[in-house]
């Protein structure tokens, strides 16, 4: 089932600016390997779930998957063949704001080769270009 917030302050929100790069959540923090977005996108809750299932099916009982993005942005859409106006439409889906550099998923407890294969499958479900990255060594 797609994820969404339990509680929100407002039912709908503005679209807001998209031309930013990730300044936080842009490195592997919990797992050993991660999948990093190279482009900006509103990642829908269904896409996030599809990626999780793809990784889970490949890894079966091995490893632990961390989902680093949460769909907390309501996106509204007017019904088909509706005239403009009459106020903002109802919420159609929930999305996570993904900026270039945002870490989408992380995996721990598996070998690099296995993690890479799992992430390739996840990347196929993503609407953006992604890359596989490892955890940074402390400098």
């Amino acid at each position: 089932m797609p994820r969404m917030p339990k509680r929100v302050k407002f039912r709908k929100e503005f679209r807001r600016a998209r031309d930013r790069k990730a300044t936080k959540g842009n490195f592997v923090a919990y797992g050993d390997y991660g999948l990093q977005s190279l482009e900006q996108v509103w990642l829908t809750a269904r896409q996030i779930e599809a990626g999780r299932i793809a990784a889970q099916h490949f890894l079966r009982r091995d490893g632990k998957i961390y989902i680093r993005v949460f769909p907390d942005k309501p996106v509204s859409k007017k019904p088909l063949e509706t005239r403009m106006g009459k106020g903002k439409a109802e919420v159609d889906y929930w999305a996570a704001r993904v900026k270039p550099g945002t870490m989408l998923y992380e995996i721990s407890g598996v070998t690099e080769d296995r993690a890479r294969r799992a992430m390739v499958r996840v990347a196929m479900k993503m609407p953006v270009r992604c890359r596989f990255v490892g955890r940074r060594v402390a400098i």
């Binding site: 969404m4 339990k6 509680r7 407002f10 009982r61 490893g63 632990k64």
Partner: peptide, 27 residues
């Protein structure tokens, strides 16, 4: 740790059926 067969959804997430929305605090 031993991995459980079924993973619980992450914190803050709620599995909701289609058509149901989140609770709106200001309403």
């Amino acid at each position: 740790v031993i991995k459980q067969e079924v993973e619980e959804p992450a914190e803050g997430a709620e599995v909701v059926g289609e058509g149901e929305g989140p609770e709106v605090i200001t309403e």
